[in-house]
């Protein structure tokens, strides 16, 4: 089941999400978005839907279901 959705096109590569992801569900992917940033990727299994990524992200990348 999808717990979290990433709109990586908005990402500016600050990685505050990764720094604040306690379960370690987020990591830097190899995907580069149109702005030129390496965007984060999520391991849906590890995500506990704590919402910390949503809370820290300045660019509205995250949606928690």
């Amino acid at each position: 089941m999808e717990k979290i959705k990433l709109s990586v096109e908005h990402c500016k590569g600050c990685y505050l999400c990764i720094a604040n992801c306690k379960p370690g569900a987020l990591s830097i992917s190899k995907e580069v978005n149109a702005k030129g940033y390496l965007v984060p990727q999520v391991d849906q299994d590890k995500c506990v839907q704590c919402g910390c990524c949503y809370t820290m992200c300045p660019d509205l990348v995250f949606e928690i279901f």
């Binding site: 908005h10 500016k12 505050l16 919402g51 300045p58 660019d59 509205l60 995250f62 949606e63 928690i64």
Partner: peptide
Amino acid sequence: MVPKKAPELFYDESRFCGGCGHGIF
């Protein structure tokens, strides 16, 4: 779990730098 979704009043991307506190505020 409380679902979290960007507030509806945002109609575009921010123009702030990456990691800027203004975006969070």
